[in-house]
Every structure is written in C-alpha cells, then in structure tokens.
C-alpha cells in the first residue's frame, strides 16, 4: 500500500489539552494507582490470613485466652463498635458522590420550586465537609479501638495477630488520613475560590481514591472482623 506516512498535523495551542483517548491524564493515572493499591492491600490481607490462628499467645481476635499466670483475656474484637465505624465510612462514600454531583450541577439553574433536598444537593461545601467529617469520625473510632486493644494487652509486638492486625488496619487508616487531608484541601479551595463544573475532574479523582479506601474496608471488615 503506497502511503505517505507522516502528515503535518496543525494542532496549534490545543495540543496541551488534546489526548489520544479524549480522557484526562490524571484520571488514567489515578486508576493505574488504584490498580497498584489492589496489589498492596492484597499482600497485606494475604499476610493477615496466612498468620490467622498462628499466634502462640493471646489476646486472640475471636476467642478467649488464658495466659500461664491464669489471667483471662476476652476475645478482643469489638464488633458493635466496628460495625458502627463501618457504617460511618459507608455513609462517607454517599456524601462523597453527592459532593461530586454538587460540583457537576453547578452552573445548571435551580428550579424555582426546588425543595430543601434539591437545594442541599447543590452544596458542594456541605458534602465535602460531611465526607471529611465522617472520615475523621472513622479515624476517631480507629483511635479508640487501638487504644482499647493496647489497654487490654494487645500491642503490635504481642503476637502475630497484633503485628498483622495493627499493620493492616494502620495502613488503611493512613489511607483514610490522606483522604481526609485531601478532602479538607478541596473544601478549602471551594470556600476560597469556589469549585465549578470545570473542577469536576479534581473532585472526581479525590472521590475515586476515597471510594477505593472504602471498598478496601468492606473487604477488611468481612475478612478480619466477621469471619472467625
């Protein structure tokens, strides 16, 4: 096939925004990052499961333990508290999608007869703040849980359960912390200069990260807390 293979392509200044797929670079990068994070948490979760039931001394997650001196350590996991914190994190994901929707809806006119719910859906600051607050609440639950465990005799050094549990949930908590700081930065930008529809992508990327941190917790909650 005869062909001139290279043709001048006059793209002027538009090249900085033109991409092959029409998608934004940052969104591709965040999805690749999330893919990589799957492998990170897979390694952490695998290790937890591999060491499950291998601790030589207690406290244990789901069963009672009596040490050589006759001291009794009850099963350490606090399911009611963690169920509550799980619920809080799930609701933060709801707040997050509503924050994204609020940013997307900016610029479209509000119907005259809009009720409170329709109006509330337009407030990106409300939902960003709500997400960050729920995330911080989750971290508060985690801080309570960790200190309670230490008080009851489980530290990161105590046994394999302590090492794997604190590392896995600590890694997740660190991700939540980064997410809360990220959301607070967005909230700050929203309060100072306002986020508009053109900032949709910036919020979307933060949202993707936030939801991913949430789905990791969905897995952790089942595998670590509920399955015995």
């Amino acid at each position: 096939m005869a062909s001139h293979a290279i043709a001048g392509h006059d793209d002027g200044h538009a090249h900085t925004h033109h991409t092959t797929t029409g998608l934004d670079n940052r969104k591709i990068a965040i999805w690749a990052f999330i893919g990589s994070e799957c492998m990170l948490f897979a390694s952490l979760i695998s290790t937890y499961l591999i060491y499950k039931g291998k601790s030589l001394v207690g406290p244990y997650p789901h069963t009672e333990y009596t040490d050589a001196a006759g001291k009794v350590f009850p099963a350490i996991l606090d399911i009611p508290v963690t169920s509550a914190s799980t619920f809080v994190l799930l609701m933060s994901s709801l707040a997050m999608v509503l924050a994204l929707q609020a940013v997307q809806l900016k610029g479209t006119p509000l119907p005259a007869n809009a009720g409170w719910w329709t109006r509330a859906q337009r407030s990106s600051q409300l939902w960003l703040g709500m997400t960050a607050l729920l995330g911080a609440t989750f971290l508060g639950f985690q801080a309570y849980e960790f200190t309670a465990f230490v008080r009851e005799g489980l530290t990161i050094k105590t046994n394999l359960f302590g090492s794997t549990f604190f590392t896995l949930t600590g890694f997740h908590g660190a991700h939540v912390t980064v997410g809360v700081l990220w959301l607070m930065s967005l909230l700050w930008i929203d309060r100072t200069r306002g986020l508009g529809p053109k900032d949709e992508l910036v919020v979307d990327i933060a949202a993707l990260y936030w939801h991913f941190v949430d789905v990791v917790w969905i897995v952790i909650f089942t595998l670590i807390y509920l399955i015995q």
Binding site: W31, A32, I34, G35, S36, C38, F41, A42, S43
Partner: peptide, 12 residues
C-alpha cells in the same frame, strides 16, 4: 485498568 490488577491481586 481496574479489573486487570484486581484479577491478579485476587489470584495472588
């Protein structure tokens, strides 16, 4: 980009 890594992670 998500399902590929997820499958490898699950299989691992």
């Amino acid at each position: 980009l998500f399902t590929g890594p997820l499958i490898i992670a699950g299989a691992t």
